[in-house]
Design a binder for these strands. Structure first.
Lengths: 147, 147
DNA sequence: TTGTGATTGCTATGAGCAACAACAATCGCT
DNA sequence: AGCGATTGTTGTTGCTCATAGCAATCACAA
């Protein structure tokens, strides 16, 4: 393919990358795009994978509880769970008259395992990009920002 | 306000926070929400502030060049710039028959300065939340992830 | 000078995600 | 029995981003 450097590389004055908040956003976007692309091979999005993993770890968990854990509002859980249910990955069983317990189907468990493998590999590659002397500081620093 | 701990704190098994990619996303979301709320006082969103700062640093910059710098597609620049123009913050002057140079208006420069102050303060508070021994490692680690 | 290909700005459209208000049914506790 | 809180749900809105397509313009070479 053609090298489109016929125009000189843009050397714009850009003070933004020196801001940690900006780099945080850009790094998160880049990582999210990469992971989304990989999970797409399983017909999953990141939220789907998060939900599946949590349901797998916590059988009979409630939609509300999931929402609280992931900071997703109850109302927005509805279409997400419906997708997973329609895909045959999760099942709902009534606990109460008002609550329903969520579990992985056999197919759901299988897909979840594939997603976990994919994510672990992705995380490893992510960390590998970081210079060794900074690597171990990333997770604690990030955690301090949201936990 | 009432302490709503009448239900025991949810102790769900959650392997997600140990993943750097997940924490990256959560941290970025938390930071973005906080900054958006503050910039809202100026009737600005984060993209708006980014655009204003870049235009301020690079008078007569082109919409396309801005998009390249911020990884925003040309098509999506249109409504963004229209908002800023309608708000009287930027002006367009024709350079070519096809290109237009963007500059801050007097009011735009003032708002931009307020936004910069607000952002600097926000960034400082962000860094302050990070334990000192991890603080200086964050920016280099993040930069390695997207640059 | 006249093509040809690339660039610019724009319209239109759709998807994904999240916030909000509102509602009926149900539960927990008094 | 009654009251407040919780649950799942519907519907609406807004922001962000991706895509496709279009007309006008520019740069460069034949």
């Amino acid at each position: 393919m053609s090298n489109n450097n016929r125009y000189p590389r843009c050397t714009m004055r850009d003070p933004l990358p020196s801001l940690p908040g900006y780099s945080l956003r850009r790094a998160a976007n880049a990582a999210a795009a990469e992971l989304a692309s990989r999970l797409g091979e399983l017909n999953l999005r990141q939220v789907d994978a998060s939900l599946l993993i949590l349901i797998g770890e916590n059988p009979d968990v409630t939609a509300s509880a999931l929402g609280r854990q992931l900071d997703i509002q109850r109302a927005n859980m509805v279409p997400l769970l419906k997708r997973l249910e329609d895909a045959g990955l999760i099942e709902r069983k009534a606990i109460d008259g008002k609550s329903q317990g969520l579990t992985l189907t056999a197919q759901g468990a299988e897909i979840t395992q594939q997603a976990r493998t994919m994510i672990e590999r992705f995380e490893a590659e992510l960390l590998a990009r970081i210079p060794a002397q900074h690597r171990d500081h990333l997770l604690p620093a990030l955690d301090a920002l949201w936990r």
